[in-house]
Each structure stands twice: as C-alpha cells, then as structure tokens.
Amino acid sequence: MRIVFAGTPETALPSLEALIASRHHVAAVVTRPPARRGRGRSLHPSPVAERAAEHGIEVLAPERATDPAFLDRLRTIDPACCPIVAYGALLRREALDVPELGWVNLHFSVLPAWRGAAPVQRSIMAGDEVTGATAFSLVEELDAGPVLGTITERIQDDDTAGTLLDRLAREGATLLVDVLDHIEAGDIGAVEQPEDGLSYAAKLSTADARIDWTRPAFAVDRQVRGCTPAPGAWTELDGLRLKIAPVAPTVEDTLAPGRLEVSKQEVRVGTATTDVVLTSVQPHGKKAMAAADWARGATPSPNAVFA
C-alpha cells in the first residue's frame, strides 16, 4: 500500500522505521519546516526529515498544511493512507480528504483519556498506573476520531516522561503497522470513542513544572518525573532557579515542606508527607551535578527553604 507518513520529532522515528521495514511503500514524509536550534541558532531539518533523507524518501515540509503547492503534491503522490505520529500541526479537511483510506494517527494514551499535546506527561503527573497508545482515524476535532487499535502499558515507579514516551513510541510503532496491514486487508472496524473517561492533556508550561513542596511526596515525585526531561521540574533558592532531576521518596517525615537538610551523603527536602532525597541539581546556566556536589558548592544556610 502506498502511504505518506507525517511526523516531526524523534518520537516519530520508530514508527517511520517500522513502516519502511513493512510491506507498505513510504512514498514521502510530511514534516515541520527546519527550525533554529543550538547556540548558533542555525536552521536544522526535523529528525523525521533527516531520517527520510537517509532512506532517499521525498520530504514535504510546508509552512502550513493548507499550502496549495503541498496539497497539489500530496494529491499527485496519491497515497492510499497516511499514518501520522506527532506531526505538530493541524490538518484541515482539504488534506484529510486526499488519501482514500484516511489518516491514521498514533496517540500516546488510551483514548479518550488525555487527548492533546502532553498525554504521557499528564498521565504520570496525575498518578495513573496504566497508559498506552491508540491508533485512530484522524478527524478535525482534537484526537476525537474512531479507534482502530489500542495497546496498554504499565507506568513504572521510576518512569520519567522521557523513558515512558520512548517505550510507547517503540511499542506504538508495531501497533501502527499492524493497523495499516488490516486497513489494507479491509478486515478492521473503527469504534467510536466513549464519552466516559474523557480528559485533556494541555502542553506543559514553565509554571506547571515549578515544584510545589506543600504537596505529598508521591505527588512531588510524579510531578518531577512527568516534567523530565522537558520542560524540566524546577524550584528556587534565594531567588535563583534550580532544575531538579527525579527525586527519591523516603519513609521519614522529618522536615517542613521545602526545607533542606544537607549531609555529606545526601540532600533531603521536606514535603507535606515524607521527605524526598534529591538526586541531581542543575543551577541556571550550568550543567547538572550530583545533589551533594551542588550543596558543597552552594552551601545553603541551615534554615534554607526551597520556594
């Protein structure tokens, strides 16, 4: 089956590679335009564009998915189906109508839970025990199309948003190929999403990542892991911002919320319940370092409190 794949970040690469290795023919990829990054702020193609170029696959990178030249080229390629993973832009009706068998989106939650931009981060922060990935038919409403296939995945106690997303991206790639196989065979049916369990996963802001030490230790742990690696959980000490890596909860309740206790071996912080131990700290503009090393250099006062 001739397909056009849409995706942009590294998260989409497992699906692209799985589709290239499948029986389907990836005629082109659609991705976001080159973006500026790095110290020099030079333009770089997206990870999907780079990987497609390595395989000799045509790259379409329109400024807008409504660009007439892009739509004309998509119609000329005439894909039967268009799988999409983390493309990063909305597709309107004129694009959705091009492939005869529609667009199949791989989303990293068990829909209808956590529709939106940050499903993995929000599921960790909410304390969910299980998440997954869903392949569904794309419609103009946000992540609302009928479901074609689902997998589930337990959220591990040490999962960060980064590690969980990597795992879901790999397992979801297998799901996506399987769904396309059945679409080609014509033996798959779509199931409308239920209204029960509907929730939305808004993109994380910097404010979302500020640690609230007045919450219980398990909630602090979940917040930090959900914000790792991006946007990065943070707090302030004496007006200076510090990025905090995943913490280690303890069973001791010895410190007031936000209060620091520094020893040679560790740095503890109080929460609304039990203390947590910091693993690493990254001062603004510097590299991350072991929490004990940071404390030796920063020498926080005996009454120091994170804000």
Results as ranks from 00 to 15, higher is better:
residue 150 T to R: 12
residue 176 L to Q: 15
residue 153 E to P: 02
residue 180 L to C: 05
residue 196 D to Y: 00
residue 165 L to P: 04
residue 198 L to W: 11
residue 163 T to Y: 06
residue 167 R to H: 02
residue 171 E to M: 07
residue 163 T to I: 07
residue 164 L to Q: 10
residue 194 P to N: 10
residue 150 T to A: 01
residue 151 I to A: 06
residue 170 R to Q: 04
residue 159 D to L: 09
residue 171 E to C: 02
residue 200 Y to P: 06
residue 185 A to W: 00
residue 198 L to K: 12
residue 174 T to R: 03
residue 190 A to C: 07
residue 161 A to V: 09
residue 155 I to E: 12
residue 164 L to S: 11
residue 200 Y to Q: 11
residue 181 D to V: 09
residue 165 L to E: 11
residue 188 I to A: 06
residue 181 D to T: 07
residue 162 G to R: 08
residue 185 A to C: 01
residue 179 V to F: 12
residue 159 D to I: 10
residue 183 I to A: 14
residue 160 T to L: 07
residue 168 L to V: 01
residue 190 A to W: 06
residue 150 T to F: 00
residue 178 D to P: 00
residue 164 L to N: 11
residue 161 A to Y: 05
residue 165 L to C: 11
residue 155 I to Q: 12
residue 193 Q to F: 09
residue 157 D to E: 14
residue 155 I to V: 14
residue 184 E to A: 15
residue 151 I to S: 03
residue 192 E to K: 07
residue 187 D to I: 05
residue 195 E to S: 15
residue 158 D to K: 13
residue 182 H to F: 06
residue 175 L to A: 07
residue 172 G to C: 09
residue 179 V to I: 15
residue 166 D to E: 09
residue 182 H to S: 15
residue 186 G to Y: 10
residue 159 D to H: 13
residue 182 H to A: 15
residue 184 E to H: 12
